[in-house]
Amino acid sequence: MKFKQSSLTVGELATGHGLSVPLFHIAGKDSQAPKVFIQANVHGAEVQGNAVIFQLMKRLEQMDVQGDVTILPLANPLGINQKSGEFTLGRFDPITGVNWNREYLDHQIDVASWYQRHCELDDKALIAAYRAELIASCDAHLNQQWGVTTGKRLAVTLQQLAHQADIVIDLHTGPKSCKHMYCPEYDVSSAPLFSIAYTLVIPNEFGGAMDEAAFCPWWQLTEHMNAVGRDFQVPVAAFTLELGSQELIDLEDALTDAHGILAYLSHRGVVADKVEPAQMPRYGCYLKDYKKYHAPTAGLVEYKARLGHILYSGETLANVLRLDRFGTNEELTELVLNQDCVPILHFASASVYQGTELYKVMTNLFELYTS
């Protein structure tokens, strides 16, 4: 079974040339199996997701695929081509300054009224009707008389694809980062299926990212239905996987992450082949315990803490060198934290302003287990 390639138009350049990206689709054998949407490279420098997609597609073509799989690498051509010298920028829309991954649509559907109009439908028909509502909402937003920004057009076009799926996986990386993932609270039992040691457990709320745009409308509907006495489970799963550091491609490491995705898809019945999760310790922390550490002083930073390893209270996080303070007690400043944590990512540059978001660290970790 082979992937079929088409293209998706996501905008236009000032010259009038269309912006299109490659789109791949493989049709599953079972119309009842979950449908999958996977995208990568919404941020220009975050290229490793494309390597994972390559390895994943190679393996899927040799497997017994039950559910439809739609894959969109290179999702943001504007961000990918936003270069400065040898570096890729592409995290923020250069026109508006908005993060490309915070442009998705919050539908703000009145779920109580919507459900009242559709409460006679069985679960299957209700899911189909709500999905059609979400897709139509995207379409209406894209075609409103006042128009939308370049970033919003890109995001909502991708969101329309995501709303057609039961499983949505968005592939990213950090600046300098170890692997970690974002998983909603209602679905935390799924996190150990992926080959990722650290999981951020996020509230079931909309914050602007693709994973939240995919699952939040369904969580809101589920909450209301359960409140009025109808037993209903959230039918959509959505995750963001952070696959290490930006500006790097590692095809061998991509095999590990492709295996983790396949283990999840196997568990969900998307592929009939049995793929077991990797044997590894896994830890989580709630988003409220994911702390940002800002540089208390400007200077040149020696990053000391090892990403993905515990940093004990009082150990050196980083050193800040100030040559303008040479010969004083401020020439070298040791930065320490007063609690145990696991550093997950740090700023890409060694040259920082005061107030730069220097590190992100997980605190109050707990172990996650494969069920």
Rank of each mutant, 00 (worst) to 15 (best):
L171K: 05
L121I: 07
L200I: 12
L154G: 01
L121W: 06
F194E: 01
E133Y: 08
L193D: 01
N143V: 06
G208Y: 11
H180E: 04
D166Y: 03
I202C: 10
S177E: 07
I169C: 12
L158A: 10
T157Q: 13
C183S: 06
S190H: 08
Q159Y: 10
A191N: 03
G174D: 04
T173W: 03
H172M: 10
D170C: 10
A165W: 02
D170K: 10
H163W: 11
L171C: 08
G147L: 06
F206T: 11
A136W: 00
Y182L: 13
D122A: 14
V156R: 03
F194G: 03
T199F: 10
H141S: 12
F194D: 01
F206A: 13
L161A: 13
T157P: 12
H118Q: 13
Q164A: 13
K124C: 13
P203R: 09
I196N: 05
Q145A: 15
G174R: 04
P184R: 03
G151F: 03
D139N: 13
S189A: 12
A165R: 02
T173P: 04
E133A: 13
K176H: 08
I167Y: 08
E185M: 02
N204C: 12
A197W: 00
T157K: 14
S137L: 07
E185S: 08
V201G: 06
V156Q: 09
A125K: 14
C183L: 01
A155R: 05
